[in-house]
Design a protein around this nucleic acid. Structure first.
Length: 469
DNA sequence: CCGAACTTTGG
DNA sequence: CAAAGTTCG
């Protein structure tokens, strides 16, 4: 019997994998394949942190497949060439895969479906709703979240998940595979790799247990999610990005036992993910082009030094620096702090949002072309947002509000850890005696603010007013 | 075409 | 409570 090639992309899971279960249901031998095509991964930059995740996740997937009497074939190179090569070597009769969305991936899939001699079959699963499905009453795509959200809730009944396959039939002969360990050693050039494993469990098992951990605290999600000093967020973004868990699994699990504000706040966040993909499909060049054309000629600062200080977490604003250092160490940043740090780079330093988005993409394990880009544009004020003009986050008040005891600061900016709560968010106001006693030497052990908040805020408002004219 | 509404706002 | 333009029904 001719085998089917199952091509894994961003669906590195067995549970609720519709494409996989359809392939298995044919009763034919299955050849699970992952092709690492560097030219194709526009949002997985070489040496990026999410590559660390990808390789670990693939190793986990291989382990799971082996329990089903199968294994994962790993190959590198041009996806089309490698795929043709495997089809020829195995005499496969079809390729099954889970749909990817937008930009490069869609065009690639179109090319593949035409150039392969066998059917190239696409299935849903990455999103809860197909991007082209939800439209406004006038037939256009949504540009504002809330109406989109309401329409989503009315239109969608989230179906039950499909089980993982019990067994995969092996082909008579397996195609060649590569050793994942040799892929790993190639990207060890980022210092963060050394410790990052303690924070995370890549793979489907890690994803499902993460969901259970979150389920224990989700009832307070509507309040705690804003607190970077607590573990109140789901931390599921990276698992969702790689498809180690389906959004449907998350939805059904969190919605199930009872409804409350915490649970619906999380479901709403899942719809934000849908909304971001909707926008990416609407604006395929969203990663480089502002959605609002007004911003095409924004006079961004040419200075590189402030950008570097921001990247290293040396701006002199404790909350900003804590966030940027959390990103460096953990490959992840709390969402509230992502907004504050992004706003600081754009509004206080007048740096092009694309440079910030690039840095996030290269350093975030959960870097996602839709969510990352849509959010940066939202903060910059050029994205899908109805009232962006005067929103300039105050890094000091944000700190006081959302990290009231300064625990988040103390954790990620240890040189400030002895400062009393009163000054932890604005060390430059502390009297000399307090600084001395806390072993803080401004300008030496911790920087002075690289820009004055009040001045920077007014400057940003002035520039924005200017381009509006 | 009109009115209501707009994720996370600042002072 | 201001600020202000666009989107959606």
């Amino acid at each position: 019997m001719k085998p089917i090639i199952f091509l894994f992309y961003r669906d590195l899971r067995l549970l609720d994998n519709i494409a996989l279960i359809r392939a298995v249901e044919t009763g034919k031998p299955i050849i699970p394949v992952y092709i690492h095509d560097l030219s194709a991964s526009s949002y997985l930059l070489e040496g990026s942190v999410s590559e660390w995740w990808l390789f670990n996740s693939l190793r986990e997937l291989d382990k799971s497949l082996r329990k089903l009497n199968s294994k994962l074939i790993l190959r590198r190179g041009n996806r089309e060439k490698v795929l043709k090569n495997i089809i020829k070597a195995t005499d496969a009769e079809a390729v099954y895969f889970s749909s990817r969305y937008c930009g490069f991936e869609n065009t690639e899939d179109e090319v593949l479906s035409k150039s392969l001699d066998v059917p190239y079959r696409r299935f849903k699963g990455y999103l809860l709703s197909e991007p082209e499905k939800l439209r406004t009453k006038s037939g256009t795509a949504y540009k504002v979240f809330t109406p989109f959200y309401k329409a989503f809730l009315e239109a969608q009944e989230i179906a039950e998940i499909v089980p993982a396959p019990k067994m995969l039939v092996s082909p008579r002969n397996w195609p060649e595979t590569e050793d994942i360990e040799s892929w790993n050693s190639k990207t060890r050039n980022i210092d963060i790799y050394d410790g990052i494993g303690v924070f995370w469990s890549p793979g489907e098992i890690g994803a499902l247990s993460r969901l259970e951990i979150f389920n224990d605290v989700v009832d307070n999600y509507n309040i705690d999610r804003d607190r970077p000093d607590l573990d109140g967020t789901s931390m599921l973004s990276v698992h969702l990005h790689f498809g180690e868990i389906s959004p449907r699994t998350c939805w059904r699990r969190i919605q199930k036992p009872h409804q409350n504000e915490g649970r619906s706040a999380f479901l709403r966040e899942l719809v934000w993910r849908e909304f971001s993909y909707n926008l990416l499909c609407q604006y395929p060049d969203m990663e480089t082009q502002p959605m609002q054309k007004l911003f095409l000629h924004f006079p961004w600062s040419e200075k590189t030094e402030p950008l570097e200080l921001w990247k290293q977490g040396m701006t002199g604003y404790p909350l900003v620096d804590a966030g940027m250092r959390q990103l460096l160490k953990k490959g992840w940043m709390h969402n509230r702090v992502r907004m504050v740090t992004a706003s600081f780079l754009i509004k206080h330093l007048l740096t092009d949002w694309r440079l910030g988005a690039d840095w996030f993409r290269s350093r975030l394990i959960d870097a996602d072309p839709a969510s990352n880009t849509a959010s940066w544009q939202w903060v910059a004020g050029c994205g899908a947002d109805a009232s962006p003009f005067f929103r300039i986050f105050n890094p000091i008040t944000q700190g006081k509000r959302f990290d009231p005891k300064g625990n988040y600061i103390r954790n990620w900016v240890p040189e400030l850890k002895n400062l009393p709560n009163k000054y932890i968010h604005e060390p430059w106001l502390a009297p000399e005696s307090v600084l001395d006693k806390s072993d803080v030497f401004l300008g030496v052990s911790y920087p002075h603010p690289i820009v004055d908040h009040k001045f920077a805020r007014q400057r940003a408002l002035d520039v924005l007013a200017k381009i509006k004219r």
